[in-house]
Write a protein that binds this DNA or RNA. Structure first.
Lengths: 216, 216, 216, 216
DNA sequence: GATGAATGAGCATTCATTCAT
DNA sequence: AATGAATGAATGCTCATTCAT
């Protein structure tokens, strides 16, 4: 009976916040800044979010949820561990890296939220499982203890994302391709395999968009 | 580099600023905060620094200069590439990791002046040289191109830093030792060598202590 | 006095507003606060009241009307001046004191509409009449002029209210019973009488219960 | 060496705050309001007070301290309990009542601070001592228990102040003289004494001002 | 009539920087 | 040179009221 909550406003706030948080950081972005560009009054923000911090949380959590849900679905549908690793490295890693704003936020402000570790562990689960199965299948003795394996995963994942983020900012003479290539190399030389090429179209039967974590 | 009189005040401001910036970030630290703990009047900050941002710049630049000068000196004095790699991994990497919180704010709050690309490349030179010499010495065919080498360095350095930060706040079941160990393992298994122990006892196992990139 | 439909909503708003105004004051209570606890939409407040201030006005005026109507009825029905004084002190004073927190906000937040002067004077009439009749009946020479009588009433009422509020927050080692007892003592020793016990059991000793100036 | 803290600014803030808090209440007065009339920038307030609440606290505490210090000194200097009561009722009560703003604040916002009870008890001490000595001296059997005595004191003190406050606001048809007279009457008829007239000049050998709690 | 999203002035407070002393 | 009070724009957030639905 009253005006209805306008989800497009919520989305607009999140999109602008994502852009600005990534560009100048959370603290250096004021709520007024967020609202200025999209022509909304300040008060509106507080219709859709409890406070500034909740905008950040929403950007991180909802972006991640979308990314992870698709990753999990595709992994569950693929029995071959090699193909699964290929999927992760060649479809999902680029997708993550493509969304520069999201990447930036999750690596900087995400640390302030307690939940980056948990997010990392969730991907670790999939990667770790694929690696273990692959090692078993190929009879390769894994030389990494479980602790070393999880260290390796964290280092490659975080280091890769951070490197690309800085590269995109111009701080590092590095391309996204270099990173993907480097990780492929590590996997292939560790297991003596070749990651299979993606059969594109095979996992993108999902909803409307262009993919990516949001609005890359 | 001395700008005025009383270098000790300047150093005190930088030390306190670094501590607070690491702890709560640049924007969340006020100039008054910096000055409060060390009993200096606000005004004095502007005798030694043009503005708040210049304090950060000074901490970064002077800290790095000190770090890199020592690294370069030690590397120059050590003819064995293996011992040089050991030095880098066991003495200088821990020093960097000890400052992970501070380093991360440079990468975090959107500053351009960090210029870590250039800094990383300077270290890259030393690491790359050591690796190349080692490969030649041991007859191992190096499989990494220069670009891959610098990618690898960036990934290991940034990933290591992020992992340590996450570990420090309990989000990752990981110690700094695990990380150093992991990197040693990568090097040792890649070249079939053992990194030699450091000459002195200082700074080797857990880099917590006296180190730091720039407490002057 | 009904203004629209659904008198129960209006009453619920008034009751909750009174509770919150008493607890935290008028300015510290938002219209949203009032409405939150009773599950009504904000807009509905403006169906029943012109604005926030009108809620307060309604609580005051209607509460008082009810209080005074009953007081007047009971006094009119009781021919004995002594019994009438007993009624006032033992039934109606506790009712007022039960609402001390609410009454105090009327006297506190700078409202003109409380108009307690007029209200107090109306009670003054009944008390004065009872005192005069009692004095005449017992042959006691009344030493208080009408002005002194109304001064006395104001002092006892306001002082009692303040004392009870202070006592309630532990700032004064005093119970509501002590206060009632003290006023009884003043009356009894001034006229050499004993105030008769109330007919019913309700409301006499400690006015905490069902009373109130206007919970409708 | 820097500008010196300007106590006159602090005083101006307190004076204006006192006026406004008394006129419209603490919550209805903004810090901007306080500062507007005296041509000071908002920031200045926070040079002299930690926050808005501290202004209120300062107004109440410093006003009271001044009042109470003089009262205590004069009482200590006067051995006759009767003269002491006279002093209290005829010099200090009027002085308190004369400062309408202070009166208003202490009776409204003062309740929010925990310390009105303590302030009351401090005066109670002096009044109670005088009354006890007087009773002993005159052989009058005091009919009030200690608890009743303190109840009486609280009621008369608070009720008196509150009545005058409302009277001054026009809410009560009552003068300050009526109140003083009423209290004199109570004392005189309770003890069968006459309060002696003040020998003015005898206690006012104190510092600069016109007396009163501040700027009556 | 009922609803609750929308609005934007207003709130208390902070803070980098200046500048009178 | 040293000091720290002064400044006022800016901050995140609230809220009485309106009005589209």
């Amino acid at each position: 009976m009253a005006r209805e909550r306008d989800e497009s406003k919520r989305a607009a706030i999140m999109a602008e916040a994502k852009r600005l948080f990534s560009e100048r950081g959370f603290h250096a972005t004021s709520v007024q800044d967020v609202v200025r560009g999209i022509g909304l009054p300040v008060g509106s923000v507080y219709t859709y979010f409890q406070n500034k911090e909740e905008i950040l949380k929403a950007v991180i959590d909802e972006g991640w949820e979308e990314f992870f849900t698709e990753l999990a679905r595709d992994c569950a549908a693929e029995p071959s561990p090699l193909a699964r690793l290929g999927l992760i490295v060649r479809r999902y890693l680029p997708r993550l890296l493509a969304d520069a704003d999201f990447l930036s936020i999750i690596l900087t402000e995400g640390f302030r939220q307690g939940d980056i570790g948990e997010k990392l562990e969730r991907v670790s689960g999939f990667v770790g499982a694929a690696v273990n199965e692959l090692a078993q299948e190929r009879g390769t003795a894994l030389r990494l203890s479980p602790k070393q394996a999880s260290t390796a995963l964290a280092v490659f994942f975080l280091g890769g994302m951070d490197a690309v983020r800085l590269a995109r900012r111009g701080s590092l003479p590095l391309g996204e391709g270099d990173l993907i290539g480097f990780i492929e190399l590590i996997i292939e030389s560790s297991f003596g395999v070749r990651l299979p090429p993606l059969d594109e179209g095979g996992g993108a039967d999902e909803g409307g968009g262009t993919g990516g974590t949001g609005d890359a």
